[in-house]
Design a protein around this nucleic acid. Structure first.
Ligand SMILES: [Mn+2]
Ligand SMILES: [Mn+2]
Ligand SMILES: [Zn+2]
Ligand SMILES: [Zn+2]
Lengths: 133, 133
DNA sequence: ATATTATTGCAAATCAGTTGCAATAAGTCA
DNA sequence: TGACTTATTGCAACTGATTTGCAATAATAT
């Protein structure tokens, strides 16, 4: 997936250097703001942390990026290039693995047991990756 | 459930006014630190916000209170008087409802599809309560 | 090339939560 | 009860993450 000028323009956004660079960094793996900022610095790019915040906010609005909150309320951002899924986080090294589940049964059970109109959910797992086991 | 002197003493904790008051406030419903602090103020109790933080931390250590992180990374605390369960949060009014689920199937599916050793998980639902529908 | 305005970077502000420390008060024991 | 020990509290200062205001910059349209 590429950051595309037309797609941005359609919503009144411009294709800029910082946006391209942040998008490129996200291609590697899901990362926090701090992670992304560090990567940019390593690349010797003088992009302000504020710009990272603002860019991610915009990417999320544009559905280009998905935000996941892990423990401690720190968000991790990843390119929204595949379907709804969840994550396992290694509590030792921070590695993240995607988890795809069939959620029909779960959602059916919830709708039955709750009086609320369910709109969305969040599900994360924590544990140890193979390396850290 | 009552905050009990012996139980606290057994772990070297003392039964104090702030602890009793915070416990009492939690009896009403699950709440954030800000919520709890506001309740205390409405009761004209001069209890510092720092004390609320420290007290909740202790209650969690003592397994008297359970902490849940909703969106935005803000924790909500509730008396730990029932089993492991999850929550639905009303996106309009903030009301919280408990959800008890049989998670065997879910956990089995996850263990099968992940290479990680799963230790714990977090699951929350968002939607609208009956009043807000 | 010029004009328009979205975007950026910097500094300052805000916000949640933490820490250090001296004053206070709960529990203990004579 | 009153003195003693030490856990607890409140206050102020601090931290780290995120937000905001604003003037300078740069992307797009004409
Ligand atoms: Mn993912
Ligand atoms: Mn609950
Ligand atoms: Zn690991
Ligand atoms: Zn509601």
């Amino acid at each position: 997936m590429e950051l595309n000028k037309k797609q941005l323009a359609a919503q009144g956004y411009r294709l800029t250097k910082p946006r391209q660079e942040i998008f490129a960094v996200l291609k590697h793996k899901p990362q926090s703001v701090a992670d992304i900022f560090e990567q940019l610095q390593q690349k010797k790019l003088k992009i302000d942390k504020v710009t990272v915040y603002r860019t991610l906010e915009n990417f999320v609005k544009l559905n280009l990026v998905a935000e996941t909150q892990f423990k401690d309320g720190i968000s991790v951002y990843e390119l929204a290039d595949h379907e709804h899924h969840h994550h396992v986080l290694c509590e030792n090294c921070g590695r993240i693995e995607d988890i795809c589940l069939d959620e029909n049964l779960l959602m059916k059970a919830v709708k039955k047991s709750s009086s609320f109109l369910i709109k969305s959910h969040r599900l994360e797992f924590f544990g140890l990756c193979q390396k850290c086991c």
